[in-house]
Simulated assay, not measured.
Amino acid sequence: MAKKIFKRWLPDPSEFRNRPALNFMGHLLHDPNLFHLNRHSVSGAFFVGLFVCFLPTLGQMPIAALLAFVFRVNLPISVALVWISNPLTMAPIFFATYELGRWILNSPALAFSLELSWEWFNTEFLRLWKPLVVGSVITGLFFGGLGYISMQMFWRWHVVRNWEKRKARRLNAAPPGTK
């Protein structure tokens, strides 16, 4: 089943719950829905993880974990998917979302340079934030929805394929004359 595919890559829930860094969460990690591997939990986790990975914020992993708690979807998958926007991919992702937001808001192109300082944040970023946020939310909703639908379809396809295999095995294993 599709469940087996995800189970290979995800940590065991008991290992996850026993990590010292997560002790502050206490009983919250004992909700079985946070570690379930079913079609709805995995699809919801794909939506949450892909949506959050396009948000231009710091702390994407805690945000994805919080949303996984709120929507009771698979926590490890939600948190892992935010790593699509990593230090190597962040610049192209956020530039593309800025351009999309600029196009949607019909705002003029602004010349800017990137500098990691408080002064830059107070001057330049305040001019750029609206198109960036609009583009990021729309892109996050689009790719989150696409991930959700794709996982629903993949899961369904995988289940139907396994049913067909079992059906073929039963037909091949049946004694002659009983087909």
Rank of each mutant, 00 (worst) to 15 (best):
P32R: 07
K130Y: 10
P20D: 14
N38Y: 01
F95S: 09
L29Y: 02
L126K: 09
S113A: 12
P62M: 02
G49E: 10
W118Q: 12
V82P: 01
L34S: 08
Y148L: 05
L37Y: 14
R161M: 09
P76A: 00
A80F: 08
R169Y: 14
P32M: 08
S107W: 14
S85N: 10
L75E: 00
G59H: 07
C53N: 12
F47N: 06
L171P: 11
Q152Y: 08
M153K: 15
T89N: 03
L67Q: 01
G144A: 10
L141E: 02
F51W: 00
L132W: 03
F6I: 12
L132I: 08
A173V: 04
R19V: 12
F121T: 00
L29M: 04
V137R: 01
F95L: 12
I104R: 05
R166P: 10
W157Y: 14
R170C: 09
G101S: 07
A168V: 03
W157S: 15
E115I: 15
N122P: 09
S41I: 00
L75S: 01
W103A: 11
P56L: 05
V159I: 11
F154H: 00
N33K: 15
F142Q: 10
M90Y: 08
A168Q: 02
G135L: 12
H30Y: 13
M25Y: 06
G140L: 14
F112R: 06
L146K: 12
